[in-house]
Design a protein around this nucleic acid. Structure first.
Lengths: 342, 342
DNA sequence: CTGTTAGCGCGTTCAT
DNA sequence: ATGAACGCGCTAACAG
């Protein structure tokens, strides 16, 4: 491959001059620059990133730490949509993305810092992490700029985050149900180690509160964000609290599971039970009944995560904490509360 | 960050010895090795990849060239599932994946070789490429090992591929329809620049041929692999060939579009028209009626692509061309051919 | 405006 | 079995 030396020789200048010319320094004769550029183009020269990284300590590379890149995360393509957004913004700004291959076992061996330093990434985007993930704690003590997805931490200057306004989204969802006459509304939440769960629960409580509906502990079950978990939770909820007429699920996948449970219980959606999800995954619009849900702009979240991180890296002063609006999408899984004859 | 020098100093040996000890050379005293390892662990040393790459010309990094990583590819998470598979295998073998950010504009600026050399990737996996993609041609003239997904090229030793047995899959699909009594079977194909389209069409023709059903050109329309394209193609097909009782679609996404068109035409699936897709995407099992389709093991394809590439890189003698079995999954969108009263 | 010198962190001869 | 010296390709002082 052609190196900077080849270009220098061919253009009759020193490598230093080539480096400066090609990197847009202004202390180089326009004519010289032109000639160098010409030779570089002709030779198809492109700088060796390893060498550049080694000396400049900057790699124009972003690390992606996603503990969610597993077979299980395939059904909700949330991660994938975010990835597309990141990829697009990174491409625009000429950064590359490297996927950190992190399995639970490896995590014990290799520290977060080592992972980053080793690869020489300029910054990191973390997603799909639990609040108790060891890497999260390590990250807080590292100095590498990082943007978190769905984890609102505002403690350090080199850390930012992007997340949907989950409180607002959950409130809209539950309010929608209340306005349709529902008074006994259950919730299937994810798990305690997810910030989004905490916020969505908060929105659920606030919506109830505003309408003078008391909050009941036994109306809330965790489904672990999985389809099966949602199914089980719905089953528990509906058998122990037969008065429920609606369930707000903290994810579409769990809502899909709930749909199954309700069907198995011989009830209909939305005639007997209204179901509302969260995320607006692809399957939500294809299932029957189509799922009423709260949309997250996943692509945009990824895009902004990458944008924010790069802005931070390049020293631009930008808001580091971004909350994206949630949007209620009403489909067929929610209806008016059934009239109970008792 | 701690470098090899730090380890050397701390352990009281030269950097050379550290390098050899940590890289598993056998010309180093067991006791020395133990001490060095101990110091390295204690210091949390991990080698700088840029430096290593620079000198060794090997980066343990795989490049991913996917022209399909766009907003559009979100609905069928085929790319994502494959990505998961690659990621898993790469992780097992301690390789990292870097996403090449390639937009059409950039492609003109930067050659394939430059892209690879610049990043110093050891090998490349290409997917989502059209047969007429300029990078494909360039790749053929480069010396970087490459594994193609869905593009069967057997011309060079450093090129391999992974693809589903599309001929078999298409044959099974169409045979299934024929066995259910269908004689007038249309096909919605992707486009001419996709190897899978060619193969699936081939399977369609073979299945017809084996059962003595003549092939008719006007029974085949291209839908460009998109939902809307599938919808339009189905519309054209059903209006110009009212005798059709079934349509084989070269992708589930197009089948989803066809479902819409049929509904708009006031016909029922499968009572009036049977529909069969290809890929087995997530939405296929949630739509109504659930889609009969041909499953591709997308995860496995990604896994094997990465495995094959790394095998090639490390000089292991393995089959470079891998054809994965397709599997017919019968759901509700196919039924017996309606009895026509004419 | 340009060239010389130095060094990033590492693997690899070649001696010892 | 171990170390000194060299160079990978590049950028960054420092001279001139």
């Amino acid at each position: 491959m052609t190196t900077i030396k080849d270009v220098a020789r061919q253009a009759g200048v020193s490598v230093t001059t080539v480096s400066r010319a090609l990197n847009g320094h202004d202390d180089v004769n326009p004519e010289t620059r032109r000639r160098i550029q010409e030779v570089a183009d002709q030779l198809g020269y492109s700088p060796n990133i390893a060498a550049r990284t080694l000396v400049s300590k900057r790699s124009r590379t972003l690390g992606l730490l996603l503990s969610a890149l597993t077979r299980n995360s395939v059904k909700d393509n949330i991660v994938f949509e975010m990835l597309c957004g990141m990829n697009d913004r990174a491409a625009e700004l000429e950064y590359d993305l490297v996927l950190f291959n992190t399995t639970p076992q490896k995590q014990r061996q290799k520290s977060y810092k080592a992972l980053c330093k080793e690869r020489g990434v300029d910054g990191v985007i973390m997603m799909g992490m639990r609040l108790d993930d060891p890497y999260l704690e390590e990250m807080l003590h590292a100095s590498i700029p990082c943007v978190l997805i769905d984890i609102p931490i505002e403690r350090k200057k080199n850390i930012g985050y992007v997340m949907t306004d989950n409180v607002q989204g959950a409130m809209e969802a539950v309010t929608h149900l209340i306005e349709r006459g529902h008074r006994h509304i259950g919730m299937i939440n994810g798990h305690a180690q997810a910030a989004v769960s905490i916020q969505r629960l908060d929105g659920y409580r606030q919506a109830l509160g505003r309408h003078g509906i008391p909050f009941a502990d036994r109306y809330v079950e965790d489904g672990g964000f999985s389809e099966d978990g949602g199914k089980d939770a719905a089953y528990r909820l509906l058998t122990s609290c037969p008065e429920l007429t609606a369930i707000f699920c903290a994810s579409d996948l769990m809502a899909l599971g709930a749909l199954q449970a309700i069907r198995a219980l011989g009830k209909r959606v939305p005639e007997d039970i209204s179901i509302i999800g969260f995320d607006n995954i692809v399957a939500a619009q294809y299932c029957t009944p189509a799922l009423t849900t709260v949309n997250q702009d996943k692509y945009q979240m990824g895009y902004i995560a990458a944008a924010t991180l790069i802005d931070m890296l390049e020293g631009r002063q930008v808001p580091r904490y971004r909350k994206m609006p949630a949007e209620l999408i009403v489909r067929a899984s929610t209806g008016p509360a059934p009239v109970r004859q008792n």
